[in-house]
């Protein structure tokens, strides 16, 4: 009798334990789920931002995320991205320098962070160097040309179908060819490839999907 009792008791206990585990798991996961939802919302803001205050606001949110979840790569990634965007938009050289320095430090953290999409990270590294060159082409062009090319090459070696790496690399090669009074013969082909890749990309994701504006710019340059 006691055995039966014990067994039933055991079963009930186990069932209750299972329920408790589920409840606890839900309760534990709830903040993360909420956090993921919140991050998704912030990423959506990043994608829509086009004014300096909007970028700064969202950059601050990302900074808070990165500090509360230092093992997550996306907050650092988007922080670096907003830093670079701000460097394009702010007129002061000191501000450009500050934001690009901060972007460099975010990108450095991404180098060894597990889960980080290294093709996207290298694309962003190249994009940062592009911003540096844009801030002072005469001085920074010769300094960072090689490193920038290496970043895009690495990004494409890791993922040949990274649309951002495809279009940014093509744009830079075309700009340099124009500077040399030459033409970049694969420019059209690369634009078409990037357009196809962008079209196939799922934009309803927290993962990087920016860069279509650069495709439009490239199309305008054709």
């Amino acid at each position: 009798m006691s055995l039966i009792f014990n067994n039933k008791l055991l079963k009930i206990n186990q069932t209750m334990k299972t329920i408790k585990v589920y409840v606890c798991a839900i309760l534990i996961a709830l903040p993360f789920f909420a956090s993921a939802q919140e991050l998704a919302s912030v990423v959506e803001t990043v994608k829509k931002a086009n004014q300096v205050p909007e970028f700064i606001q969202v950059r601050n949110q990302l900074e808070r995320f990165s500090m509360s979840q230092p093992q997550e790569w996306l907050p650092y990634y988007y922080m670096a991205y907003t830093d670079i965007q701000l460097s394009f938009m702010l007129p002061s050289k000191d501000d450009k320098k500050r934001y690009l320095t901060d972007a460099q430090s975010c990108l450095a953290k991404l180098t060894n962070l597990s889960g980080a999409n290294q093709s996207e990270v290298h694309t962003l590294k190249g994009f940062r160097l592009y911003a540096l060159i844009a801030s002072d082409p005469q001085t920074n062009g010769p300094l960072y040309y090689g490193e920038l090319t290496a970043c895009y090459d690495k990004a494409l070696a890791l993922n040949a179908n990274n649309p951002r790496a495809v279009i940014l690399s093509a744009l830079f090669k075309n700009d340099m060819a124009k500077f040399m009074h030459q033409s970049y013969p694969d420019f059209q082909k690369e634009i078409e490839k990037a357009a196809t890749l962008f079209a196939a990309e799922d934009t309803a994701t927290v993962n990087p999907t920016w860069g279509k504006a650069w495709l439009d710019r490239a199309k305008a340059q054709k």
Partner: peptide
């Protein structure tokens, strides 16, 4: 303007 104010170790804060 645009300073990031937050509770250390959390994502709670404001600009």
């Amino acid at each position: 303007a645009y300073a990031n104010v937050f509770i250390k170790g959390t994502a709670e804060g404001a600009t």
